[in-house]
Amino acid sequence: MRIGDTEVPEMEIQLSDPAPYDWKNQPAPPKPYISNFKIETPPSSAQDEPEVPQKPQPFSFGFMSMAKDGQQSRMESQDASGRVTGSYSIVDANGITRIVEYYADDTGFHANIKSNENGIETGELGSATITKL
């Protein structure tokens, strides 16, 4: 089936009667029920098409939000090489703070976390560095 320019797989639906039940003496729901359905997959030739690599698209965004129960902010950007850098912070109404600065590139995701949350200890966890505020 085609919707606009998009090929959409056909869907097969089988209807059947549900088994009766008694939930707080309520009558069985109205019939018919959909007991199962099947979605046809596209022909294998469509699945074998290679994925075309896309060049990274630079972007940048940020926001700050304040509410009666705290505040939060986030900034993130990506350069033409695909490296993403960013940070976010959360401060709740009691002054509990978490600041996360991060970058992601070919070597993976790396974070520097600063917080005054209970139970936070300075150290490293995977590719993250944790600092007690």
Results as ranks from 00 to 15, higher is better:
Thr97Gly: 04
Ile90Trp: 06
Glu121Gln: 13
Asn116Val: 05
Glu51Thr: 12
Ile96Pro: 01
Thr107Glu: 10
Glu12His: 14
Asp79Asn: 15
Ser35Tyr: 00
Ile130Thr: 03
Ser87Ile: 01
Gly126Val: 09
Arg74Val: 05
Glu124Asn: 12
Leu125Asn: 10
Pro43Leu: 06
Met66Gln: 09
Ile120Ala: 06
Ile96Tyr: 06
Tyr33Arg: 08
Gly82Phe: 08
Asp92Cys: 06
Ser115Cys: 06
Phe37Pro: 05
Gln72His: 03
Pro30Phe: 08
Thr131Glu: 11
Phe109Lys: 03
Ile39Val: 12
Thr6Ala: 05
Ile113Tyr: 02
Gly70Met: 03
Val84Gln: 11
Ala46Phe: 05
Ser60Asn: 07
Ile34Ser: 04
Gln72Asp: 07
Val100Ser: 06
Gly70Glu: 00
Ser73Arg: 15
Ser44Phe: 01
Thr85Pro: 00
Ser16Ala: 12
Pro42Ile: 01
Asn25Tyr: 03
Ala111Gln: 09
Ser115Asp: 07
Ser127Leu: 15
Asn118Val: 09
Asn112Phe: 11
Ser45His: 07
Asp105Trp: 11
Arg2Gly: 02
Pro42Cys: 00
Ile130Asn: 03
Val52Ile: 15
Met75Ile: 10
Pro9Thr: 08
Gln71Met: 13
Tyr33Trp: 14
Asp105Lys: 08
Ser81Ala: 10
Pro18Gln: 04
Gln47Ala: 14
Ile96Cys: 03
Asp79Val: 06
Asp92Ala: 01
Glu76Met: 15
Val52Arg: 14
Arg74Lys: 15
Thr122Trp: 04
Ile99Leu: 15
Ala128Thr: 02
Gln57Gly: 00
Ser115Thr: 12
Val52Glu: 13
Gly119Asn: 04
Asp5Ser: 07
Gly108Ile: 04
Met1Ile: 09
Gln47Ile: 04
Thr107Lys: 15
Ile34Val: 12
Pro53Glu: 11
Ser45Met: 09
Met64Ser: 14
Gln47Asn: 13
Ser127Gly: 02
Thr41Ser: 09
Thr85Leu: 07
Asp5Trp: 06
Val91Trp: 01
Lys24Phe: 13
Ile130Val: 15
Ala19Pro: 00
Asn36Trp: 09
Lys24Ala: 14
Tyr88Ser: 07
Ser77Gln: 13
Ser65Gly: 09
Ser73Gly: 13
Ser65Tyr: 06
Ala28Gly: 08
Pro53Ile: 12
Ser35Trp: 01
Lys55Trp: 01
Pro9Arg: 12
Gly123Phe: 04
Gln14Gly: 02
Arg83Ala: 07
Glu124Thr: 15
Trp23Val: 14
Ala19Arg: 11
Ser77Met: 11
Ser81Val: 04
Phe59Ile: 02
Val52Ser: 12
Gln14His: 05
Thr131Ala: 02
Ala111Ser: 12
Pro30Tyr: 01
Gly70Ile: 07
Gln54Pro: 00
Glu121Tyr: 04
Thr6Gln: 10
Trp23Ser: 10
Arg2Ser: 15
Gly123Arg: 05
Pro58Tyr: 05
Gln54Leu: 14
Gln78Leu: 00
Thr41Lys: 08
Glu49Leu: 15
Glu10Lys: 13
Ala67Arg: 11
Glu7His: 02
Ser115Pro: 01
Ile96Ser: 10
Ile120Ser: 03
Ala111Cys: 01
Ser89Asp: 14
Phe109Thr: 02
Pro42Gly: 04
Ala104Ser: 13
Ser35Pro: 00
Val100Asp: 07
Ala104Tyr: 05
Arg98Gln: 13
Asp79Gln: 08
Gln47Cys: 03
Glu51Arg: 11
Ile3Lys: 12
Ser65Ile: 10
Phe61Leu: 02
Arg74Gly: 06
